[in-house]
Structure formats: C-alpha cells, structure tokens
Write a protein that binds this DNA or RNA. Structure first.
Lengths: 339, 339
DNA sequence: TTGTACGCGTTATCAG
DNA sequence: CTGATAACGCGTACAA
C-alpha cells in the first residue's frame, strides 16, 4: 500500500528542508533550478498532492459548499443540485449534500455539522417542517457567524441573506391565463397546505389571474391536498363534488393523479378538462397525455445560486448586501391543454 | 458578527491554558470541578464547537464519505444516495456528492479532488464513459493509497474492492419468466449498448430465461438503443419491422416510450403486448397503464453500501478482504402485464 | 539559495 | 490538578 506522500517525506528523502520542498513545488524564484527540478521530478514520480485538510486549516477555506435540501428523490431539487455542482466544479469547489428529509431537526443537525468548519457557505431550501414551525434561528446563527448563506425556492422573509427563486406567482399567472385564454370557466387549483412559501405564491398568482380577467374566485374550486402520498381519496371527493373544465396543480404528481381520476370518470383531456402542472419533470414529458407544465429551470437556479454564493465567499466583504434573484418560469405546452 | 470561538479564545478569556480548556470540555478527571464548571459554562455560553477541520487533520479522519455517481437527475441513483445519507448520518458521517456526468475525465478529476484528504472512503458507480473505455487506473490508484472504495450497480471485475449490486440477471430472468408464464411467445428486449455492465447482465438473464423455457433467442427481437434522448425513431424502425407480444426494457423511459409508440399503432396494453421495465421509479407508478417493474431497491443498496464502507473505514485492518453483496430484485406487478 | 520558526485548532503526552 | 510541548501537513515571513 502506497501511503500518501507529504512534504515531509520528500524533504527527508531529498535531504532538504520542508519549506524548500514547498517552495520548489510552487516554482518559487527563490529556489535554484537544480533543486527545483530534482524536487519536482521526485514529487511527480511519487504523485505528490497537497493535503486538502491541511490547506483548509491554514487558509480557513475548505472549498466545499454545503447544500441542504428536503429530499433528493425529487426532480426539481436534483436539477438544482446538478446546476450547483456544475458551476461549483468550475470554480474548484466540492458540494456536500445533506438531506433534511423535510424535518426541522435534521435540518438543524446537518447545519451544525457543516457549520463547524466543513464548508465555506450554504445553499439550502427549507424543509416543510421548518416552514410550518417558522423557526429560523439555526439559519440566523449561521449567518451571525459570518458563513455565507443562500436560500432557494423555499425561502422565508425572516432571514436576511441572498435568495434565488423563480417567480412562482408569475408561473401560476401564466398558467391560469393560458387556461382562461382557452375559454375555460371553471378552473380548479390543486395545491398543498399554505405554509409552504411556494404554494402560497402560486395561489396568489392563480387568484390574481382570475381577478384580472374578471372571474370570480371560488373557494370550492381550490383543493388543498394533505401530505403527499395518498392522492386517491381527496381527488375523488373533490372532483365528484365540483364540475371543472381546467385544473392547475402545484406539482406533477397531483396533475398526473388528477388526470388519471378524471379519465377514469370518462372525461377527455384536454377536450373536457385541461391540465397544467408545476415542475417540468419526467412525468410531465412522459405522461399520457403529456402534461403542459411550468418549467422552473432548476439547473439555472442552481448555477445562479452557486455563482452568487461563491462570489460572496470569495469577496469576503463585511457588507450585508443581499440580493434576491428572481428567475422567470416558462410555460411548456404539451397535450394536456389545447393549442 | 460573532466569530467562531476556539479553545484559544476561551483559554485567554479565562486565564488558563489551552490544554486545560480542552480537557475540561472533555470532562477529564484531571481537572478540578470548579475549573471544569467555569470552562464548560463559558463554552456553552459562547456556543463553542470544535473545528472539524482541525480534528480531521489531527485524526486523519474526515468523517466524510465521497459518493460519485454518473447523474443525479436519475431516480435510481438518488434513492441510493438517500440510503447512503441515511446510514452515514447515523454514524456521524457527511456525504460529499460528486457527479461524473457519465464522463471519464470528470470522474477522474472528482476522485482526485476528494482523494487528497477530503474523504475517508468512496462509494461510486462507474460512468458509462469509463465502462466504455475500460480504464480503471484512477480507481486502482485510490485503492493503492489505502482509501476504502466500494462500487455499486455499475461495477467492474477489474478492480478489487467491495461491491454492492442487485442481481440484474435474476431481475431480467424474473421478468422474462413472468412474460413467458403469461403465454407470450415473441418477447423483445430493449436495451442499451453492451458496455454497461448492468445491461450485459440483464441481457444474460433474458437469454437464460428463454433457453430454460426452450424458446429460441432471436437477435431480431433485441433492440439496442443508441444513447438516451432520441427514442422516437429507433422504436419506430424496430416495432414496425417485428411483431412482438411482450417487451422487456432495461429502463423506465424505454418502456414508457415503447408503450406510447405501440399504443399509437393501435396496440392494446397489456392485452396485445405486455411491458416490463427495470427500475421502479416515478414513471412506472404513474404511467398509463402503470408499468410492471423490477424494483432495484436503491435505498437498501445505499444503506448496505454505506454500512460496508464505514465498517471498512473504521476497522482499518490491512487485510484486502473484499465482499460483494448481491441484493435480490423484486417484480412489482402493475397494469402493463396480465395478472 | 536554503532553512528556521510560527501559525492554523485540536489532542495527547509528559512534566510540574 | 494544570500547563507546556509536540504533532497533524502546509505555507510563509524572516533569518542565515
């Protein structure tokens, strides 16, 4: 087993001091050509690579960024991670991914683990538990310590930091307007509970579009789904009790499940009922009919987040100047709406 | 801005030596009650937490494990990552995720970045590029250095290390047998190019099942898809030229796309043609008809991988005793086959 | 041109 | 009971 070689080994082997080796490997002018060549050759031969940990300790820079997301088996979040990775790697950063699993406690634990020197900055999206609880002290503490922090997608106004979001209101507005333009009159919204920031925004956009078109907002057309998983029954109750001709869903799964139920009731899509869903993931593309969707541009979001965060890390100015970047969503028309 | 506090700060503030503080915080018997209480109170007040990096340097243990996967916007890999995270966190480890993006070069770069002290061990699945190239020197070098390494799913026999896979042959066999039991006679296999280890295995299982049932293996029933993405044309060519009554696909996307095309040709599923796909992801569940699938138990795989790797990391014996854990796949019957 | 000494934050050993 | 010292691996200001 070829143990990792250190400056010390090289120094001893070549009968010079450690600092000479260090300088030689940085091609310092201070060192004679001969010595440099000898040392560099030796280093290459034994494949010397500086130890990241030692450098981190010295520089107080780890070149790691911590990403905390609620779930990883999730199309949108993974596209964001991919974007973060992509940009971070070009800047020589690694990405440490931690999952909060939608739990406040795990979010706190993970942040504490990472905050003790493991990372130079955070990119995160709040767990639903945290948003429900409304307790953001763990974020505030980290920020207090001077660790750069960026929130994306699921954010809160209660903490001051950089943010990247898509314009969820606009997404919902676009979608709703599209349905109205099709001539739909009874448009339903299928959403989650209100404490998720994104759901609130989407609902606002939905309502605004209706009002702008002088349509009435009827609470009975709004279905608030309980926690994910059991979709069958709520849909049944809802669609059996109200007659709709269009449905906007805050995620793909709701849309697919909704379409399935209505089709089983003999409705034709999109002739009888149009569907639009948030998050343009795999399901939207491969659904039958394929689903018209709001693309949230996760990868771009991740890249933007990484760019902003890394800039902040490397600028190290004390100024608390935070920006919120708002990306625009796009409507991708497929077969669940009428062209 | 409340800077992170160190032992040194505490020592200075309390007029004691650094080592006294260190010991006091570890509740050492050597330190008097009074001093300990004073120091512990102070530490708690200022929320002292030891610096991970310094500890890593000292212990030569980072408590990080590196996970390198070809793609993260991918249901199977994310379930594995989730399993790894889950187990690793219970053992106090963080997970550093790097993406090879199916590229040999990125795989090498990422491994080198992580191998210089950032992680205590690797869990990885080979990029297709690497499998195509057949060059595993980067893995061998890392293993040479004594860094524990575990391969999962996309593995190779050319490197000696721990491995976790599902029995892909068995999965394909199970699926094929199911189709045969339904009375299908013209069973197609839709797969990728042969250099992916998993595809090879699945093909072998498919062939074996046919032979065991005294059925002829006909090359014309095997469709080798080019790289992912453009599914339309190859399917058209294939299904227009051969008549089949069942299809086994090595992934969900192929299955969904295949079903779609055949439905567009007026075939009924599963009455005219049965479908089974590998990887029980979202698409399988929500497809129409829902897809009978081989569950690869990604999360279990991740947990098993993390368990084996961490055990190896913490046992630090020199013995090169490597095991290969083989998980059994499960057939999940849905509506694309006949019950 | 090369080497010494120090510091990053921690722990362990040993001396007082 | 407490403190000084060395060590982990590296970089660098300063001394030789």
């Amino acid at each position: 087993m070829k143990q990792k070689i250190t400056l010390k080994h090289i120094a001893k082997e070549l009968q010079v001091s450690i600092s000479t080796v260090s300088k030689a490997l940085k091609n310092s002018e201070e060192i004679s050509r001969d010595t440099k060549e000898k040392i560099q050759a030796f280093a290459k031969l034994y494949n010397y690579k500086p130890n990241n940990i030692a450098i981190s300790l010295k520089n107080k820079r780890t070149k790691n960024i911590g990403v905390i997301i609620p779930d990883i088996v999730h199309h949108f979040f993974t596209t964001v991670v991919r974007g973060v990775e992509k940009y971070a790697n070009t800047k020589g950063y690694n990405v440490i991914v931690c999952l909060s699993d939608e739990s406040f406690d795990k979010e706190v634990i993970n942040m504490e683990m990472l905050a003790n020197g493991s990372i130079d900055g955070f990119i995160m999206s709040l767990s639903s538990d945290t948003q429900l609880k409304g307790d953001y002290n763990h974020l505030k503490e980290v920020i207090e310590q001077g660790i750069p922090m960026l929130l994306f997608d699921r954010i809160t106004n209660e903490v001051d930091c950089d943010k990247v979001i898509i314009d969820d209101q606009m997404g919902a507005y676009l979608a709703t307007q599209k349905l109205i333009d099709e001539g739909r009159k009874k448009i339903a919204l299928v959403t989650t509970e209100d404490y998720l920031s994104v759901s609130r925004e989407r609902k606002t956009g939905f309502v605004r579009a209706l009002k702008d078109n002088h349509m009435e907002v009827q609470e009975q057309y709004i279905l608030q789904m309980p926690t994910m998983g059991m979709e069958e029954k709520p849909f049944k109750n809802f669609f059996d009790s109200v007659e709709v001709d269009a449905v906007l869903c805050v995620n793909e799964i709701f849309a697919i499940s909704g379409m399935r139920y209505l089709k089983s009731k003999g409705k034709r899509i999109p002739e009888d009922v149009s569907f639009i869903g948030f998050t343009d993931g795999l399901l939207s593309k491969y659904a039958n009919p394929s689903l018209t969707a709001i693309d949230q541009h996760g990868e771009k979001m991740g890249e933007a987040a990484a760019e902003i965060l890394i800039e902040k890390i490397e600028s190290e100015l004390e100024e608390p100047s935070f920006k919120t970047k708002i990306l625009s969503p796009t409507l991708i028309e497929r077969d669940s709406t009428i062209n």
